[in-house]
Every structure is written in C-alpha cells, then in structure tokens.
Amino acid sequence: MYQGDEPEELEKLVHADARKARLKYLLVPIIIYSLILVVPAPFAFEYGFPYRSDVPTILFIVGVLLFFVAAWWDFGAKKVLNESVRIGVKITNDDISYMEKQGFSLMMMYFGIASLFIATAFAVFYI
C-alpha cells in the first residue's frame, strides 16, 4: 500500500552500493600510501633523495595519524543521522546498532591500512 514496499531486487543493489562506498572511503588512504611510496622514487634515483630514511618516517607518521583519524572520525554517520531526522525517516535502536557496526568495520579497515603504512615503513627502513 505504500511506495517502496517491494524492495527484494533493490536490496542486492543496495549491498553492491555499500561495497562501492566502502571502497571510496578506503581509496583516499590507499592513494596517499601509493603517492608517498611512488612520488619520491624518481627524486631518489635522479637527485639522491634519501628515500630509505625519509619515506619510512613519513609513512610512520601518516600511519599513526590514520589511526587517530579512524578512531575519531564518524565517517559521516552523524550527518546521515541528522538527515534521517530532517526528512522524517524513523530511526530505531536497530538502525543505531547497524550504524555502529558499519562505523566499526570502517574503522578496522582504516586500522588495517594504517598498519600497512607502519609495516611498510619498517620494511623500507630495514630491508
């Protein structure tokens, strides 16, 4: 009787959308990671930039920063919540738990990437 009452097909699309959105969030630190590794390389080969001492430092600092970002950032959950209230979407405790779970999984992914930064820093420095 209400519009949008038959969402079986939509559900699959929604899950696919969520996966894409997660990738978008992860893309930023991955791009930063790649840039830190790649951009100094030509300078190291051509102009003697101290790649093995400076790049690990930068990677380590950015990795630690990323831990803090992941721990403190709500990944836009608050904005979604405010928008839901503004347009009149009913929010239940179940929705809040779902948001917390999603926030937690994003945070863990960021932690993983931050660990990658730090692991790479050690690898570049020692290997």
């Binding site: 519009q3 929604v14 899950h15 959308d17 969030y25 959950a77 979604v80 999603q102």
Partner: peptide, 24 residues
C-alpha cells in the same frame, strides 16, 4: 526526491530494506 543513500556515507550507514527516499 531526497535520498539518504545518495552519498557514500548514506550507502554504508542506511540498512538495506529501509525506506530512505523522501518524496519531497
């Protein structure tokens, strides 16, 4: 229409099966 899922955050934080489009 205002869609909660129109942003990346909305796609992640709004549960599948939840009505999220406002027919303004």
């Amino acid at each position: 229409f205002f869609g909660l899922r129109s942003s990346a955050a909305g796609s992640i934080f709004v549960q599948a099966g939840k009505k999220s489009v406002a027919h303004a």
